[in-house]
Design a protein around this nucleic acid. Structure first.
Lengths: 208, 208
DNA sequence: GCGCCGGTCAACCTTTTGATTGATGCTGCT
DNA sequence: AGCAGCATCAATCAAAAGGTTGACCGGCGC
């Protein structure tokens, strides 16, 4: 019997996962959490084998699913965490996997796939949705040239429509520095304008 | 007894809505549809009072929820359509409401709110999520100054990172025309740079 | 200690973009 | 017929952004 904890802020999704998974004879939903904090608490209790973790917990939440995943898997004897989320982007996927998630599924997965993934997670095997696996492999191939923290910060403000001047004021920098960061961002992303950089970074899930 | 049709491409969401709504004694789920086309077919059958309609039906779908809503409500004696979707943006909301949706809810609504909305829809009353209602009122106050088709087209390419030169080539225009369109876009959106325009248009759901 | 990298800044120059003004043709509405 | 709105283009000027080169400092690893 695989004992499950469902962590999602949407009542409808919780009910849906419960309905889909309860029909499996070897599954038992032992708890539900509507917040990330509550999920961490409940996952610390003994008697949970797999946590189904959403990544988005609404705007009024201090902790996100990736942070909760990290908090859960940090403990010895922790349950496996299977991320089940609506949309996938690099910005979400990689932190979650780095935080110790055993698998990553999308909510539009068919019920059988969901059940298989839960069994795999319970056995300690990984379960990745094909789209996620694809992007992980792509990431392997291209050394990725991730943006530095400062570069990401500057690009984020640019994506909000700020000019170099405004960015420099906001971050207490000179315009030269802002331009310097942006030039690096452009070369790393393989583009040559701020608008293209914003688009490319968004596509790769580096911002927003 | 209110007879319901659930139209959503996610099995988990269908199960969740079914679980939440079946617990109401005056509701009966009489059908489910995993595609927009199937929803239109089933809604044409007699014996459906309210259709719970998702707007997104996956990339491999020819018809979206708004189009399905229009097809359903076009018929005399058609059931009410209550849009229940994950995220809200102006780009989705208004077409759906113009297509004849009776209400617009987000999936993170609590079960009671969902049930109330279904009863309101069945009675022909409107049910809007607060965030949606807010934006409708805001839209009333600001005469909105919608972008023209051409302006939207140009802005869309700008959002893809193209320069004015590239846009002019793509659309077989002169750069002067592209700049002219963009100036109009900027004044309509109240911004003064392409990046800010992209951000603002995205925020308002005018593009992407 | 030395090299590397990230972050900071400067000066210079080219290209792009934004702002303004003005003009033309077409369509739809009254 | 007249008007408004949209789309098209031109010319011009100022501002912003992009590209290049070079420089300094601090932390980190070997």
């Amino acid at each position: 019997m695989i004992r499950l904890l469902i962590a999602d802020d949407h009542p409808v999704v919780r009910a849906g996962l419960r309905a889909v998974l309860e029909s499996e004879p070897d599954f038992a939903i032992v708890a539900e959490a509507a917040t990330a904090e509550r999920a961490v608490e409940l996952a610390a209790e003994p008697g949970v084998d797999v946590v189904l973790m959403d990544l988005q917990f609404g705007p009024g939440s201090a902790m996100n699913g990736a942070q909760a995943t990290a908090a859960i898997t940090a403990r010895p004897g922790a349950p496996r965490v299977l991320v089940v989320t609506t949309y996938d982007s690099d910005a979400d996927t990689l932190p979650a996997l780095e935080a110790g998630a055993t698998g990553y599924l999308l909510k539009d997965a068919p019920p059988e796939e969901l059940a298989q993934a839960v069994r795999a997670a319970a056995a300690g095997r990984s379960a990745l949705a094909p789209s996620v696996a694809d992007r992980l492999l792509e990431r392997m191939r291209t050394p990725s040239a991730a943006l530095s923290a400062r570069e990401t910060e500057v690009l984020g403000l640019v994506a909000d429509g700020l000019t170099n001047q405004q960015v420099s004021q906001r971050l207490h920098l000179s315009q030269a520095t802002v331009k310097s960061h942006l030039v690096h961002v452009y070369t790393k992303l393989g583009v040559d304008s701020r608008t293209a950089a914003v688009r490319e970074a968004r596509r790769r899930g580096l911002i927003r």
